[in-house]
Nucleic acid binder design. Structure first.
Lengths: 192, 192
DNA sequence: CGTCTATTTGAATGTACTCAAAAGCGGTGG
DNA sequence: CCACCGCTTTTGAGTACATTCAAATAGACG
């Protein structure tokens, strides 16, 4: 595997491979098994994860016990419960592995240290949140302007490998619909 | 009027009134007339606005020419097209005054300068984006778990004065429904 | 091969939407 | 002061899309 971390950071800030290597010292590699919890609702999110391979997803659970998928993070994406990680309060969401997943973890403390030591890394994380916010605004806009079918098409267009890795009922939940509805949408699309 | 700016910043970071006063020098007061544009889609958002009184809203326009309200900012809230303000690329959204609105404006350049000069202000803006991101995640979670009726109830609970200031069809759009549907929801609720 | 889980299908229901029109409200000018 | 205009909200009737409940198939894995 290439240096995914370097590539990912490089996408946002101009930084040398050496500086990323220094930063890398503050991260720890870990393998998370399929369905293993990374963060559980009510816990504190002490780590931020960078997905090297596999994938994770976050969700909330409503009063009726139903999962609502909020985020899906495949390779080269960062995930945690942002509220809890930033504030160190209890997490709203659960983050769990979709399949066997290799991650690089950074603790809250090392994140703070990295931001102190490496201005480029500080800048990177600041822009990471900024970009996540901008993307999420687009998602909100999309929810109100697009039909479920359009949202599905755009999703598989921007993340073609999501189909292989993520069960359909999680994709449905992410899109804000029920698995049966997604099944019908797919059936309708396949007829074309 | 009290010092809304100081109060607002103070809510997030520990900072002296003097330091805010210094920062205040980099802002300019402006009155925006009802329906006046603050940012137009396709333009660059050169300013970030802090609403002192009145209110503004942002929206996208779809292929059919329909508005989709993304954000509503009443007093003591910050608004702009974040993507455009951060990146200086063309704005996705339009930001417009709901009624006569008094704002404090900060230009992109002064924002950068303020972040350089005043670490507390840098921290404030960083946390502003962070908090906005966390709130938006909650909104996304809410969209998929709550009915339109529940979302409406929660909205007027958290922002009781929104009813007086914002036309019902904008509130409907913000909630992701049509004005007719909101009217029917309100009718149903008033019967209880 | 059997079991467990995921996906698909069917039928009935519900919620929000469209189209269309009426009623309400606020401001302006005769 | 009232009549009129434009804009917002409400109401009605029919429709579309997603949901629910239920059951049948398909796939994955030991």
């Amino acid at each position: 595997m290439a240096n995914l971390l370097y590539q990912n950071i490089r996408r946002t800030v101009a930084i040398s491979e050496e500086e990323v290597e220094q930063f890398r010292q503050l991260l720890q590699a870990k393998t998370i098994q399929k369905n293993e919890f990374f963060v559980q609702e009510g816990d504190r999110a002490n780590y931020l994860a960078f997905v090297l391979s596999g994938g994770m997803y976050s969700y909330s659970v409503d009063e009726k016990g139903e999962k609502h998928v909020i985020q899906i993070a495949l390779e080269e994406h960062w995930i945690t419960d942002p509220y809890s990680f930033f504030s160190q309060e209890k997490a709203f969401y659960t983050v769990q592995a979709l399949l066997k997943t290799e991650v690089l973890l950074i603790s809250k403390e090392n994140h703070a240290r990295a931001c102190d030591l490496y201005p480029n890394i500080e800048r990177f994380f600041r822009l990471l949140v900024q970009n996540a916010y901008v993307h999420l605004l687009q998602r909100v806009a999309q929810i109100s302007s697009d039909t479920a079918e359009e949202r599905y098409l755009k999703l598989i267009q921007s993340h073609p490998n999501i189909i292989e890795k993520v069960p359909q009922y999680y994709i449905a939940s992410y899109l804000g619909i029920k698995p049966q509805s997604l099944s019908r949408i797919r059936k309708k699309l396949s007829k074309k």
